[in-house]
Design a protein around this nucleic acid. Sequence first.
RNA 1: GGCGCGGUGGCAGAGUGGUUGAAUGCACCGGUCUUGAAAACCGGCGGCCCUUCACGGGGCUCGUGAGUUCGAAUCUCACCCGCGCCGCCA
Length: 443
Amino acid sequence: MDTVRWRSASPRSDPEMIDVRRLRHDPAEARAALARRLDDGALAQFDRVLELDDRRRTVLTEVERMRADRNEASREFARRKQAGEDLTALQAELGKAAARLKDLEEDLREFEALQESHLLAIPNFLATDVPEGGVEANVELRRWGTPPRFDFTPKPHWELGEQLGLFDLPRGTKVAGSGFPLFTGMGARLVRGLANFMLDLHTREHGYTEVVPPLLVNEASARGTGQLPKFADDLYRLERDELYLLPTAEVPVTNIHAGEILDAEMLPVAMVAFTPCFRREAGSHGKDTRGLIRVHQFDKVELVRLCRPEESEAEHAAITAHAEAVLQRLEIPYRALALAAGDTGFASARTIDLEVWAAGVDGWLEASSASTFTDFQARRAGIRFRAAAGVKPEFVHTLNASGVAFPRTIIALLENGQQADGSVVLPEALAPYVGVERLVPPT
RNA sequence: GGCGCGGUGGCAGAGUGGUUGAAUGCACCGGUCUUGAAAACCGGCGGCCCUUCACGGGGCUCGUGAGUUCGAAUCUCACCCGCGCCGCCA
């Protein structure tokens, strides 16, 4: 199917962060772009980076000059040894030079490490069309569907779920802890049906290749997609093994081609994965935590695309449409929001959220986030392609979208589909996957 | 988990301390030849960084990192990965 180009155990020995040369080339532009995110910490990082870069390059130039001298001296040494000359004096002299070089190389390593740590904390450049401002400035792009009307008071999903025997949250809490839901009976069947429904849609109609990725990822992968180092608190970590539970399939799937140079014909790469996701949700306790709204473990079908830079605009529209198609087939009313600068994620250049209407909780819930990361993740993960034989490799652009996250989809299905008698009517497209057209209380 | 062997350019495969970024073959790109193609022949051909308007110059890179040495693909140590056998296990 495709050609795997790397064989080594560590394909990412030399990761790039944000393009330093871009920062260096037009600092004012870069600083202004960064300021749009309304993140003072990032700005502080930025100022440090430029200063460090300057000092780093000064030392680098010196180190390289000394190494050039050493290489030349070494060749001279070999020649004179061949000629049988006495080299003890020269050897001593070169030894001193080697020691000086070693000190300087240590300085260089320090600068490099320091600069890298700052660079890793600088977020992606935003697309120019991202609205200015914070979360209040998000722009509603479009709405699809009509929220249902009821002649009774619609119940929240946690009541429906319990009455219909779909999930048992207290027992999930007993087994693992709060936020680890237990689906039971037809609820479990609903989860399985949703997975098959979404995977079929994306593989058959949208051209995605299905993958089942590792659920644990290493540090390099988490750094590649931008979860680390900044968002370590959001990840479940297995300290003994230096591994992390995936917060989203974006992490393992995007990293599938890390460290590779892809053939241009392989692009765009389009992959879909159904996985559980694990999030610590540190600091969000007590907020939107009823029922399934915010949980530590949830299922999600994730779409990931790798493409040529000139295609990423169109790809972003396409991947968003693929996510929307899921909600449309499920007849779930939703709205698409263009996230404002201050609300856009660290690695993203532009994000469009899809929020589903949930009648029981009477509000909009984010069920999908479709982002283009331009070359940000590709740099960190080292994903490149060669446009033509003989030309330099360039970074791909990466994109992903939830297609879609399960809990809020289930919330919408239950709350919007509920009937006066307490049953829930499933959308036509989903019913065959679940095996019933209507969820009724267990007998 | 234990023992053993091994990781060199897109691939195959030399190289065990001194102009070796690395022979050779294949693949690939350009050219000659040809009506065209193939063959043959000639030339080119990894990645990254710094510097330069450019031409060019320099450095790093032989799984990764550290070390020994005037000098490391070559010696030492740690780690990662692969293969084989044994043990354990779904």
